[in-house]
């Protein structure tokens, strides 16, 4: 139980200019969140679990061809299309800005999967299996999901909870140096990213490095995109889902700052 009343609103900034497509985040996520191992069959059946995935697109024609990488994870939309369609409230918005999934409540209608434009929800078509020698690597803080359940990125909520218990409660609920910050708390993917392309933080924390980006993108909506001061944008912004993940456009030295990609 978290007794702290500190008002968090988590968010993430993904700097596409720094992402080199190394997939460290994907592996870290896989390990942290007890995702089943994506073997050959999982890919052949198009049923791989990738709570965060790196999409690779080619830009330009040979020989001036460039690989572009976009890490895509659950956008934790403020206005999430997956939430209203669940008949049993298995997915809902919690008071820290996260879109969370209750595995015990999920009945497997898969409507949320259909209605997620980012395709970041995964259905357990099979019961997950790990080889005997890997049983001990499972994270004890994270549930192993059974078959018939939809799952997705949680922003490593187990880490958030542990951090809140260890740091915030000690201080009586005041937001001080010892509260969770971008520096002292991060999901597995952020921690693993070698180029710091991913930054996690609290939008309500004035000193959080992600705050300027969110302020900027919130101030100028999609119709005033050209007035934005930063490279920030939201994916599929015209869908009005209001994600809590912001992407920073690739810096293209030849083109100024207009190399953005809207998914």
């Amino acid at each position: 139980m978290v007794t702290s009343r500190i008002d968090h609103k988590w968010g993430m900034v993904v700097d596409l200019d720094r992402c080199n497509g190394c997939q460290a985040c994907v592996v870290a996520c896989q390990v942290e969140n007890n995702l089943p191992i994506n073997d050959k069959n999982a890919f052949l059946q198009n049923r791989a679990y990738e709570w965060i995935r790196i999409e690779r697109y080619w830009e330009g024609d040979y020989p001036n061809i460039k690989a572009r990488f976009i890490p895509i994870l659950c956008q934790h939309c403020e206005n999430a299309p997956c939430e209203p369609v669940c008949p049993v409230f298995a997915t809902y918005r919690n008071d820290e800005g996260l879109n969370v999934q209750l595995y015990n409540r999920c009945v497997g209608t898969r409507y949320c999967i259909n209605n997620c434009p980012y395709q970041v929800r995964f259905f357990n078509y099979w019961h997950p299996n790990w080889p005997e020698r890997l049983q001990n690597q499972l994270n004890p803080d994270v549930t192993v999901r059974t078959r018939g359940i939809t799952e997705k990125c949680t922003f490593c909520i187990q880490r958030l909870r542990r951090g809140q218990l260890q740091v915030e409660r000690r201080n009586g609920g005041e937001l001080g140096d010892s509260t969770l910050r971008a520096g002292n708390h991060m999901p597995a993917c952020v921690q693993a990213c070698p180029t710091n392309a991913l930054t996690f933080g609290d939008q309500n924390d004035a000193q959080s490095p992600i705050k300027p980006y969110f302020d900027d993108v919130n101030r100028y909506n999609i119709h005033h995109e050209s007035e934005r001061q930063t490279r920030g944008y939201r994916m599929l912004e015209d869908m009005n889902t209001k994600p809590n993940v912001i992407y920073l456009k690739k810096v293209d030295p030849n083109k100024g700052s207009s190399g953005g990609h809207h998914g």
């Binding site: 049923r47 791989a48 078509y125 099979w126 078959r147 018939g148």
Partner: peptide, 9 residues
């Protein structure tokens, strides 16, 4: 499990 169907991601 539903893996026996052709449904996928």
């Amino acid at each position: 499990g539903l893996g026996v169907t052709g449904l996928n991601r």
